[in-house]
Nucleic acid binder design. Structure first.
Lengths: 343, 343
DNA sequence: CTGAAAGCGCTTACAG
DNA sequence: CTGAAAGCGCTTACAG
């Protein structure tokens, strides 16, 4: 057996392998797809020919002929680089093993023709699945467009209609509750809170957990210490400026709904002459690996973004399995660092 | 004309459009691809039918039949989330307008079978182009594998063999030179330097610019103030620990080859009881938007990563144009903030 | 256990 | 200016 010369591009095809192995292309197809009903001897012959020719099935051809494209897409509209790359890592880690590739498709959640854009995209590329992250995963027009195209999807950290699709999440409310309890146990009774972006479901859940923890001790959030933020550094600075306004009583701790805002709070506090953590404790939420480093190191909640994305891809690719659960709740972790000090 | 019922998946095909418009599929193909030699009247008829049917050409079918896949990939091996997302943004912004989609393909630059993995990938998916970032863009095995597959590629910030492919870059050496000159002009003569990851070409160029600026005033880098780093926060902390060792003379400023390391330097300095910027000025390099926020705000060099990626995609998609230059050098910007203070 | 035929939805190369 | 035929590299559905 000697390899025939391969054409331009160097790629050999199923025909080359079939010829070399002395079988039909259908048999080669069976072997490449690990289908049953092929004699071991035939299988070996085909494998040998495929190896000799460096044959790799053409994904596009498989896709056009078959029912799978081996392409999944990640839809997002989120300015947080660490969050996005964690999501991508998780999806890719799961998808690669199954021969799938990841298309990144950022979407503008405020585009007036968002639904049409998605419909066009799905008509152009036959995706095998979509992973939706906040805030897109909570937008009815997005879900409708995807469902109309008949493409399976999994949502990460959705807020609305949890039964509408398979979902992966963590318990944001419980995490915020537990972190707040820690603050209280450490002697903090005057705690400020910076709300997250109202379009993100997690923001509401985190506040809910915060309030629950306070009420357990008969406390209530104080309006003058509770400020709207938008998950950005700048909004954290603004919130801190309001909460720490000169001439008013200050809280001893501020819990920001994400790490970027916590960083803004710390920056403003330091600029205002407060020593951290002596004069003010600060806590955040996210702990994306390698994303943020503060001084003092930030107490926060570790959100398992990569694991959630891995699980989401797993739900997508296993969706025909009988035993596959349709929803997954992943564990978070409290990360206590020096930005919080006992009173 | 009434739209025929579309099949499962809802997508209409070129045949549906041809039938409805009363022309051949070839004519539909011509119209969809904006080819010449179609009467305006025919063109209108086809457009109308296509609109009525919500027809979108199937990318996979175009790809299999034609010579283009409308897929480009970004290859990278870089732990910096902000860098990666900036690259992706730039590529996507340029590619979308031309109907291209982006596949993200992180590679392990230390994998022993890296070349084989890439070869397999390129045999599996016929990519129209690849964008290579450091350190992959300087690895001979990577370039060889891609060239053997005949896939066009553009490199971002390459160090070696600049003539081997179209490239996009900024002048790292000049940027480091100019920032160092600023430090000198502000009265700093004792300046420490934290080197970047040796596998990244930019690291060497930045050091070169630093040295050039010193020599212009007859100074030399001092070995005890020059430390190897690896672009990570931790390596910045380590470098600062060495440079600021107790009982030794300290520099008045430290220039770290990227922002993460600068952050590490700042954290260590504060931990060691130094006031910033009074006791020590710190400068970094990168200024990825939204990636890092420090207190005091960090003086750094703005590297136009998104613009470089946009330009790289542009080179890829325009590569047949006669007038297209093969290389692009993009401007940087010095960002002077409060982490540096005049002596 | 294996294969011949048809077809996925387009483009290419050619003919008129 | 327009179209009929062939084919891209596979899988599906069917036959034996």
């Amino acid at each position: 057996m000697r390899p025939p010369n391969t054409g331009v591009g160097g790629a050999s095809t199923i025909n080359d392998v079939a010829r070399l192995a002395g079988v039909s292309i259908k048999t080669v197809s069976r072997v490449m797809n690990d289908e049953p009903n092929v004699r071991q001897e035939t299988r070996d012959k085909v494998q040998e020919a495929a190896t000799l020719l460096h044959y790799r099935p053409n994904l596009l051809a498989r896709s056009l002929a078959g029912s799978r494209s081996f392409l999944v897409a990640l839809f997002y509209d989120n300015p947080n680089p660490a969050y996005i790359t964690e999501l991508q890592k998780g999806v890719i880690n799961r998808a690669r093993g199954s021969g799938y590739h990841l298309l990144v498709e950022p979407q503008d959640s405020h585009a007036p023709d968002l639904a049409r854009q998605i419909t066009n995209l799905l008509a152009t590329i036959r995706l095998d699945g979509i992973i939706l992250s906040p805030p897109l995963c909570d937008m009815a027009v997005v879900l409708q467009a995807i469902e109309a195209a008949g493409v399976p999807y999994v949502r990460v950290s959705p807020f609305l209609n949890p039964d509408r699709s398979p979902c992966v999440r963590m318990d944001d409310a419980q995490a915020a509750y537990e972190l707040t309890r820690k603050l209280i146990e450490m002697g903090h009774t005057d705690i400020g809170f910076v709300l997250g972006h109202p379009e993100h479901g997690g923001a509401h859940q985190r506040y809910e957990g915060f309030v629950r923890a306070l009420r357990e001790d008969g406390m209530e959030p104080r309006p003058e210490w509770t400020r709207q933020g938008y998950f950005s550094y700048e909004s954290g600075v603004e919130a801190a400026r309001a909460i720490l306004a000169p001439g008013t009583k200050h809280p001893t701790a501020i819990f920001a709904s994400n790490d970027y805002m916590a960083l803004g709070v710390m920056a403003h506090a330091q600029q205002a002459g407060l020593r951290l953590p002596d004069d003010l404790s600060v806590a955040g939420f996210d702990d994306a690996p390698g994303a943020l480093r503060t001084w003092p190191p930030l107490t926060t909640v570790r959100q398992p973004v990569e694991d959630m994305a891995y699980a989401a891809a797993d739900l997508l690719l296993n969706r025909n399995d009988a035993g596959a659960d349709q929803d997954r709740m992943l564990p978070f972790a409290l990360i206590m660092r020096e930005s919080v000090r006992a009173r």
